[in-house]
């Protein structure tokens, strides 16, 4: 088989695997509720790979491609900010500042905690 054919088969395999995991995620979400379907799907993929139900070596290239481009999928939701024009006009600056500052605090806190616990010698 030619390399291109093999690669497109791998891509087809990968997208099918992702969609099946997502479908199971939807099923779990429907039954249990709680986390959003995509996050259940993420866990299903991790477990399927671990138990060799899905072949990791087939996924590699497609996953790399997805990660290189997935940022663009967040754009439509981000543009949604304009729907809240009135709210933004009224409280915008305060909200952005508080969000910005507290996000930085959370980043620093978790980062420092993990960093320090890592450098401490194991008992």
């Amino acid at each position: 088989m030619k390399v291109e054919q093999l690669n497109s088969l791998k891509a087809l395999y990968s997208f099918s695997a992702l969609l099946i995991c997502l479908a199971i995620g939807y099923l779990v979400h429907y039954i249990v509720g709680g986390l959003p379907p995509a996050l259940y799907g993420l866990v299903v993929l991790t477990l399927s790979l671990k138990h060799r139900l899905i072949r990791a070596d087939f996924l590699e290239q497609t996953i790399q491609w997805i990660f290189r481009h997935m940022g663009v999928c967040f754009v439509p939701a981000g543009v949604g900010i304009i729907e809240h024009y009135e709210l933004v006009a009224r409280y915008g600056v305060t909200m952005v500042l508080i969000t910005f500052v507290t996000t930085m605090i959370l980043l620093t806190l978790v980062g420092l905690w993990v960093n320090i616990s890592e450098k401490r010698p194991a008992p």
């Binding site: 969609l19 790979l49 999928c73 754009v75 949604g80």
Partner: peptide, 23 residues
Amino acid sequence: YQSTISLNYLLEPAIVALGYPLY
């Protein structure tokens, strides 16, 4: 939003893909 809804649909499989590095 309606015209870019396909990008929104792709967001979910992309999040599922994050399971690969986690594995």
